[in-house]
């Protein structure tokens, strides 16, 4: 009787727990890769980062890679995207296919001259749109760029953006030649982006220049 009552209590606990409010524990990551003329040579690193992210994401998570071009606010700029299934073996196949897609993209971009302008804001808006659609519990935008935005005169990006609940990580923010002359330009640029992200409602803002520190950012939960 004592064992039966214990099992009944356990069953009731599991029932209550299972019927409770469900929180989404999946994560969605959108990687923005700068393909402008000055930054296109960093594509190998970007490919490594994407592969690293593929190794860390779990079944049910979503990953997308978009490029930053002269005008980036478009679905056409999403290079590859995947929402992983539940079966671990099938997930491996999805990851392998995604990696091959990224390799093909990197190869093609290396042969191109790169875009003339850099529309980071458009890419961020596109990324936020994608991430919100996934309804993931944790949403991250990884910006692989020098964070130097350059727009043509027709493109309007001086608009408020919405990044509620999204974490923004700026990766491999390289120093430009002018930054070396006056480091305040680099620091001001990062500060400006941080302020913009936080004003837009971003849950966090981080800058990572050493790729070995990536695991601190994307450490698995629990």
């Amino acid at each position: 009787m004592k064992v039966a009552s214990s099992l009944a209590v356990l069953g009731a606990f599991l029932f209550v727990v299972a019927c409770g409010p469900q929180a989404n524990h999946n994560q969605a990551v959108y990687v923005l890769i700068d393909t402008s003329g000055t930054y296109v040579k960093e594509l190998d690193k970007a490919q490594g980062v994407v592969n690293y992210l593929l190794g860390t994401i779990n079944p049910g998570d979503a990953l997308a890679v978009g490029r930053v071009k002269s005008r980036s606010f478009s679905e056409k700029e999403i290079v590859a995207k995947v929402t992983l299934g539940k079966d671990p073996l099938a997930v491996n196949a999805q990851k392998r296919a995604f990696s091959e897609q990224i390799a093909a993209f990197a190869k093609a971009e290396r042969q191109s001259t790169g875009s003339r302008y850099t529309d980071i804001t458009g890419g961020i808006i596109q990324a936020a749109e994608y991430l919100n659609e996934t309804q993931a519990g944790r949403k991250t935008i990884v910006i692989f760029s020098d964070m130097q935005e350059e727009l043509d005169y027709k493109t309007v990006r001086d608009i408020p953006i919405q990044l509620d609940g999204i974490r923004v990580v700026a990766l491999n923010v390289t120093k430009l030649g002018t930054d070396n002359v006056d480091p305040r330009r680099y620091l001001d640029r990062l500060e400006w982006w941080e302020k913009r992200a936080r004003t837009a409602g971003a849950s966090d803002w981080k800058v990572v220049n050493d790729m070995e520190h990536l695991d601190r950012i994307f450490r698995k939960k629990g």
Partner: peptide, 9 residues
């Protein structure tokens, strides 16, 4: 199925 959570952990 992986990635389905019953509680937070």
């Amino acid at each position: 199925g992986g990635g389905d959570y019953i509680t937070d952990t």
